[in-house]
């Protein structure tokens, strides 16, 4: 059973994931209506607590909440508790005193959503914490693959790029493995954690080997500003070795799909045309993201459950 919070895919089992994905499919239908709104969460308050800037994810959560008729409040305090002299936990407790029905947390440091969840009555949804997890991203990725392939069990998934810094990679590794897929990771050795195979994946330093027979190719965003010169020598070399274009995509299965969590560095990790055209499913990911987040909000904040941490309504 899905618990009170959604902090990571590592905490879920296959049944939880299937239930969320099924609920999300129903939510997709709401987005196709002329009036894209249902009264499910009317009168409930959802707080988007983003300590780290994010347009896409916070907008996706905001739209998801609004389509369920919840009141959505965006709150973006300074990211460092040191600079503000207000601890993240103070911020969270302040919010808690205002009795929200769900709090969505993004923070640049792994573990912060968990620490906040330990202190709050309301359920907490992790919208990305450091290099730890980004569970709703992995769930929408699973949903997108399910739509494209009709199954996840038995598929081969290649995740390419900066695995060491990627919460998207971690959540997807946990998610695809739990759903029965085989997962490979590839990237420059400086971007692949030495212990990555303890997670149950196979690591490659060659793109062609990693892609051989892959059904799904997931490209990760490279943080150009931060990493060029430290973890790889230059953008040119990165693009030549691990950037994906149509020619390199031929290493994968003929019917492979291409995914990216966005935003894409066009011409770096992904060629311009692949960012826009099939077999890329990037816009399906975005569309599914809203429905998936509606499903998560509905499951965590939408039903009165017994338990002392629930708000009352």
């Amino acid at each position: 059973m899905i618990g009170r919070d959604l902090l990571g895919i590592e905490d879920l089992d296959r049944g939880d994931i299937e239930r969320i994905l099924e609920t999300a499919e129903h939510m997709l239908e709401v987005g196709r209506r002329e009036v894209k709104k249902v009264p499910t969460l009317r009168g409930r308050t959802i707080v988007n607590l983003f300590f780290e800037p994010s347009t896409r994810t916070s907008t996706s959560f905001e739209i998801a909440g609004k389509r369920l008729s919840a009141d959505v409040v965006n709150f973006s305090p300074a990211s460092s508790s040191i600079s503000k002299h207000e601890s993240i936990l103070d911020t969270a407790r302040t919010l808690d005193a205002m009795d929200p029905d769900a709090v969505i947390v993004r923070h640049g440091v792994a573990g912060v959503p968990k620490r906040i969840a330990d202190r709050l009555k309301a359920p907490v949804i992790n919208a990305g914490d450091g290099a730890h997890e980004h569970p709703t991203q992995a769930l929408l990725d699973l949903m997108t693959v399910m739509q494209a392939k009709g199954r996840i069990d038995g598929l081969s998934v290649a995740i390419v790029g900066d695995v060491v810094h990627s919460r998207v990679a971690r959540s997807n590794i946990f998610g695809f493995l739990k759903m029965g897929a085989e997962v490979r990771v590839a990237g420059p050795p400086t971007m692949i954690p030495a212990a990555v195979e303890t997670l149950g994946v196979k690591a490659y330093t060659s793109l062609s080997e990693a892609l051989a027979g892959a059904d799904v190719v997931m490209m990760l965003r490279i943080q150009l500003e931060r990493l060029a010169g430290s973890l790889f020598p230059s953008v040119r070399e990165y693009t030549a070795t691990f950037g994906l274009d149509r020619e390199k995509l031929r290493y994968a299965r003929e019917d492979a799909i291409v995914m990216h969590p966005g935003p894409v560095n066009r011409g770096v990790e992904l060629s311009h045309d692949l960012a826009d055209e099939r077999p890329s499913v990037i816009l399906d990911q975005v569309r599914n993201g809203v429905a998936l987040r509606m499903a998560v909000l509905y499951l965590l904040a939408g039903q009165p459950l017994a338990g002392e941490r629930r708000g009352s309504w």
Binding site: E10, V109, A110, G111, D129, G130, A131, H132, E133, R167, R170, P193, A195, V196, T198, L199
Partner: peptide, 8 residues
Amino acid sequence: AVSTRIGL
């Protein structure tokens, strides 16, 4: 293995 799993 632990740092890889927990993302710190």
